[in-house]
């Protein structure tokens, strides 16, 4: 059951690749990175339940969420201001 859910979520994340490759503006690609981040957090927690030790995997999921947040902030700051500081 968890495996099937992982498969569905991974395929739904795969569909966003169209916007990543085609995406006319830069914001489509940033949104793709954000969506894939949120999808994969769910996949990581589900994989934790597949391996029957969710506590470690929830830790990674938290690290992952924070890094994805920093990533999107860095991209958007660069697009808006042209520099990072």
């Amino acid at each position: 059951m968890f495996e099937f859910t992982i498969l569905v979520i991974v395929i739904s994340a795969f569909l966003t690749l169209y916007r990543m490759v085609k995406g006319p503006t830069i914001y489509d690609r940033i949104l793709t990175a954000n969506i894939i981040g949120t999808k994969t957090v769910v996949v990581i927690v589900l994989a934790g339940f597949v391996f029957k030790s969710p506590q470690f995997f929830i830790d990674i999921a938290l690290v992952y969420v924070l890094i994805n947040f920093i990533l999107v902030l860095a991209f958007l700051k660069y697009v808006e201001k042209g520099r990072l500081d």
Partner: peptide
């Protein structure tokens, strides 16, 4: 466009992390 390449590389790393988890 190099910024697109950077975004795509970050997506690559995010997916790679999921592969390691799997």
């Amino acid at each position: 466009e190099l910024l697109n390449s950077v975004i795509i590389l970050s997506i690559y790393s995010l997916i790679m992390a999921v592969v390691w988890v799997r």
